[in-house]
Write a protein that binds this DNA or RNA. Structure first.
Lengths: 117, 117
DNA sequence: TCAACGAATGAACATTTATTCATATGTTCA
DNA sequence: TGAACATATGAATAAATGTTCATTCGTTGA
């Protein structure tokens, strides 16, 4: 028998079992994509401003003190992640949070960082 | 009175009120930093492998099919975000999740992406 | 109809980030 | 002690990302 043994903590068959039980790679990829969207201060601030109200692009830009273009670009990213939604009214686009998950994810993250040693 | 009026949805005073109620910028920055760590498929997969057990670096590398060096680099990032912790035993370093938040954040994210239209 | 305005978009640039390769560190055991 | 091994780390490279600037699109109202 020409079996290759590894001398690590876990047996080869066990490693394979762990591989099997992992969620499929596409799911994990989507998950990473979602968190990537949360992983930017500008987008976090935008979501934060939208916590209790809808706002148009110009007002968001004022609140977070950034240019209209930058805000608009980030809003597109937030939109495609289904984190914010738009309502158009005349010349303006009003954005609001799309989903309760946003607040929940936000709060969980806060818990983690405030509990840090 | 030389007050500049804006003709957007919300009055200037209201905008300032919203600015005031925003969490301070350092908190939001840390929050973004935390989610940035979740925002990478390799790190997500590592955390996932560690969901129910501790593993040494070599085994993690086997499970997620990446090089030892890449895994080690990512573990350092996870460690400094307090998401995983190490226990050293002889030649090996055993990593495990540091915190229940990891699982909670993970599951919330999964909920969000599976509910998408 | 056309000027003014709010928002969206594309291209360019600078910065950040993940991976790889090579090497260093630290531990075990022969 | 020194060879073998597990892990960590530094430098280099390639790829991804955020912001800015310039421009376009779409709507309003004079």
């Amino acid at each position: 028998m020409n079996m290759v043994l590894n001398n690590n903590s876990v047996e080869k068959t066990m490693l394979n079992a762990i591989k099997q039980e992992m969620p499929d790679i596409n799911t994990l990829f989507s998950l990473a994509e979602l968190y990537k969207v949360f992983g930017d201060t500008t987008r976090i601030r935008i979501m934060c401003a939208l916590f209790n109200r809808e706002l148009c692009v110009f007002d968001i830009a004022e609140i977070i003190e950034m240019g209209q273009s930058a805000v608009s670009h980030q809003l597109r990213i937030l939109r495609s992640a289904h984190l914010v939604k738009v309502r158009k009214d005349g010349k303006q686009s009003y954005y609001s949070l799309d989903d309760d998950h946003v607040k929940e994810i936000f709060h969980l993250g806060l818990e983690h960082i405030t509990e840090e040693k």
